[in-house]
Design a protein around this nucleic acid. Sequence first.
RNA 1: GUCCCCAUCGUCUAGUGGCCAAGGACCCUGGCCUUUCACGCCAGUAACGCGGGUUCAAAUCCCGCUGGGGACGCCA
Length: 496
Amino acid sequence: MTAERGAGSPSAMPEVRVRFAPSPTGYLHIGGVRTALYSWLWARQHEGTFILRIEDTDRERSTAESIQIVLESMRWLGLDWDEGPEVGGDHGPYVQSERLDIYAAYAEKLIQLGHAYRCYATKEEIAEAREAHQRTGTKEGFRFQSPWRDRTEPPADAATPYVIRFRAPQEGTTSWNDEVKGRIDILNSTLQDFILLRPDGMPLYNFGCVIDDLTMQVTLVARGDDHMINTAPQILLYRALDAPVPTFAHMPMVLAPNGEKLSKRHAAVGVLEYRDMGYLPDAVLNYLARLGWSHGDQEIFTRQELIEKFSWDRVGSTAGRYDAKKFLHVQAEHLRMLSDADVAGRTVPFLAKRGIDVRAEDPVLLKAIPYVKPRAATLVDVAEAVDYFFRDVEPEEKARRKFLVPGNADNLVRLADLIEKIEPFDKKLLEERVKSWLEDNDLAMKSVAQPARVAMTGRTQSPGLFEVMEVLGKEKTVQRLRAGARLAAYPEQTTA
RNA sequence: GUCCCCAUCGUCUAGUGGCCAAGGACCCUGGCCUUUCACGCCAGUAACGCGGGUUCAAAUCCCGCUGGGGACGCCA
C-alpha cells in the first residue's frame, strides 16, 4: 500500500467510509458496478460504511425512474448500502439535487476565503474566447481566463446571472499517492478556474463531489481512471477549505472487446439485463472483480472470498476488455456451485415467463435439476432444459423427420411395452432392463436412443435417456413413447 | 495538439532482479469418455511492442520511441 494516510496516528485509524456515487441516467453500467463492488468489498472487509449517493445534478439526463433502476440493480447484486436513499443516515440527504443549500453555503465560504469568485461571463463570451484561442494555433489546451477573477466591482445590472468559479492556483504542483496508480503529479498551470456552481445553484461534478465526500466524511474515493483529471482540482478544493484529503483509488476502465469505451453497441451494459438473462449476482460480481483484479491463479470466488481477499494493491493498472464468453463461463461455474433446491427456486420465475407455473418445491423440478445443471450456464438455460417435463411435446420438425420414421416405430412400441412393466421406476433399473432387452434382440443402443429421446423430449439433445424417464415418470414416459411411435408410423400426422 | 494513464498468449491474468527455454483461466484445435448434448479428463497452438542503458543476471529497474486509452464542458 502506498498511501500515506493515518501514518501519524496509527491508534486513531479512521473508520473506513467509502461511497458509490452513480448518476442516474438510464441503467447501472457494469463498469460502474465494478467500481461499486471494489468500494463495497473494501468497506465490508474493514467493517466500514458503504454509502450510496445519487449524483443527479445533470438535469437533462437524470430521471426519477433511473434512480429506481440504480437502487434495484444494487439490491439485486446484493451490494447493500449502510447510508443512502431509502435507508437514511447521519450525513444526508443522499441525493445531490436535495443538497443545494449545502453547496451554496460552501461556495459562499470559498468566496469569503478568497478562493472563489462570481463570474458574469456569458457562454457566448467563453465560446468566443475558445475560438480565438484555436485561431492562434498554440499547442496549449484552452483555459478560460475569466475577466472577473481579479475584478472587484459587480456588474452594473445586479440581476446579471453568474456562476461561481474556483480561483485556481496557477503555479506549483498538486500530487497524491493513488492506491492503484502510485504517485501522480499534476502541474497547476494546466488547471483552470473551473466552475463550482451554475447560475441555478446546481453544483458541477468536482464541487458537488468534494462537498459531499467532505461532509459525508468519506475516507477513500474509488472511481474509474477517467476521473483522474478531476483529482487535482478536487484536492485543491479540499485544501482551500482546510479539509482532510481522502485517499484516491483510480481503477482502469472496462473496455469493449475492440478496445473502445464499452457501450450498448458492444454488449449488454445495464446490469439488470444480466438478471433477465439468468445470470447470478455472485457470478456477475466474480467476473467483474476478476476483470482488473487478481489473487494468484484463482478464477472462481464466492462473495465471502472476495470480501476476504480483495486489496487495492492487487488491482492491475491496465484497462480490461469485456469478454462475454469468459463471463458466461464464470456464470456456469457459479450455477454449478448452487444446491439443487436453490437452482430450482431461482428457476421458477424463468419458468413462469414461459407460462409454466410450478413451485420451487415441485418434485419433478427438483428431480430434473441435477441432470440439467451440468449442461446449463444460465437460469434461462435451466428453464429451457426442464420445459418438456411440464408440458406436452411437439417434436421439432427436423428431429422428427430424422428419427420418428416408420423404421423406428416398432422399436418404440416395444420399448414402451417393456418399460410399462418395470418397477421401481428408477434410472438404474431402467438402464439395466433396457440394455439386456437390447442385447437379447440384438439391437444397438444407438438405434433406439435418439428416436426415444425425440419422442420423450421433442428434441435431439437432453440428459441421459434413463434420467429423463425417471423424471418423467412411468405414465408419461410410456405415453410419449407410444405417441412417438404413432408419429413415426404415420409421419404425415401431427401429435394428438 | 496539450495533459494524464497504460503496455506479458486473441482475451483476463500470474510474475515485485536469478526458482521463467514465462504459469493459470476463457476462447480455439485434436483426442478420450459416450444413448444425444453437455459435464469431466488428456493433449496442443499462442505472449514479455521496439531501441538503448543499469546489473554477474531484466518480463521485472531507468530513459527514449512506438502503440493504445482517457481527459481537455455551465456532463458525470
